[in-house]
Simulated scan of single mutants.
Amino acid sequence: MTKSTRMFELIQILRAARRPVTADELAERLGVSARTVYRDIAALQAMRTPIEGEAGLGYVMRRGYDLPPLNFDQEELEALRVGLALLVRTGDSALVDAAGRIGKKIDALQEPVDWLKIALPGVPLDDPEKGCVSKGMLRAAIREERKIEITYRDEAGVETQRILRPVAMLYYHDCAVLAAWCELRRGFRCFRTDRIWACTLREDGFAGEGPALRRLWEDSDTPLVPFATAI
């Protein structure tokens, strides 16, 4: 969680609280240390955010304080709501959770909308307890330019171990696909995420190579159709 996101969440917690909230409680909810909470509150107070209280007693937000309104018109807000709801179809549980958090922030500043309905069938939601690899982990490996080691089972049930440099995620209506440079095949391959049965983030990475690899992948003839099999 970035500092700006954490400070926004801190404000939201204090706005909703009915009693003073201690630094330890805030730290537990935000997943940081109490010392970090003290620093964030001091920074917010320096920006004239009306947070009152002190260490050991707890903090409250002065009544009447509100965040600035979102600068979106109604069409833009409805587009956001539909787009967030459609994330359920990706089967990416981390993105779905993030969409829910964003939706709550929009509802906190705007009237809720209950007449926009989205048909939900799509990619099955990833569930690590059922053996599914988290799509969030795959996206993190792309962002952080980390190699991953996977166990992949193709459509014929043949299992292989691969070391990959992941470069892109593609979401289709019935599956999600990871595009990567495969060290086993010495080339770009696409892997259906529902056929990845184990995944480990490796210590070694490919820092700085991601943009160049993506350009090479985009120029390659790697098949992108959802039924493509990595061989």
Rank of each mutant, 00 (worst) to 15 (best):
V123N: 14
L95H: 09
I142P: 00
M61A: 05
K104V: 07
R48I: 03
Q45F: 07
L95Q: 09
V88L: 13
T90Q: 15
V133K: 04
K104E: 13
L87W: 00
G100L: 05
R101A: 13
N71S: 14
E52I: 08
R101H: 09
D127M: 09
I118L: 03
R35Y: 00
R62G: 05
A43K: 00
S93N: 06
Y65R: 12
E75H: 10
G56A: 04
K135T: 01
L86E: 12
A85H: 10
L109P: 06
A46C: 04
Q45Y: 11
Q74R: 15
A99N: 06
C132V: 04
V113S: 05
I142L: 01
Y59W: 14
A119Y: 14
P128N: 14
R101W: 05
Q74A: 07
K117I: 00
G83K: 08
G103L: 09
V88Q: 14
L138N: 06
L77Y: 10
A156M: 02
P112S: 06
E145N: 08
I148N: 02
R146Q: 07
E144H: 05
A79L: 13
A43P: 00
E76W: 01
R146G: 02
L138E: 03
E144V: 00
R101Q: 12
I106G: 07
Q45E: 09
A55M: 11
M61R: 11
E149I: 00
G64K: 02
L109Y: 07
Y152D: 08
N71E: 10
I41G: 03
V133W: 02
R101T: 04
P69R: 15
E129G: 14
M47R: 13
L84M: 06
L67F: 05
Q110S: 07
E111R: 15
V113Y: 09
E144N: 15
I106A: 04
G122M: 04
D92H: 13
P112C: 05
R62Q: 11
G58R: 14
G64P: 02
D92S: 07
L125S: 15
Y59F: 14
E145S: 12
L87Q: 13
L57T: 01
K147R: 11
P68Q: 12
P112H: 15
I150G: 04
M47A: 13
R39G: 08
P69F: 07
I51G: 12
Q74K: 10
Y152Q: 08
I102M: 14
V123S: 14
T90V: 02
P69Q: 11
G103S: 10
L80P: 01
I118F: 06
W115V: 12
D114C: 07
D97S: 14
M61F: 03
L120M: 10
L125I: 08
G91F: 15
A46R: 15
G136P: 06
P124S: 13
I41H: 15
M137Q: 08
T90W: 15
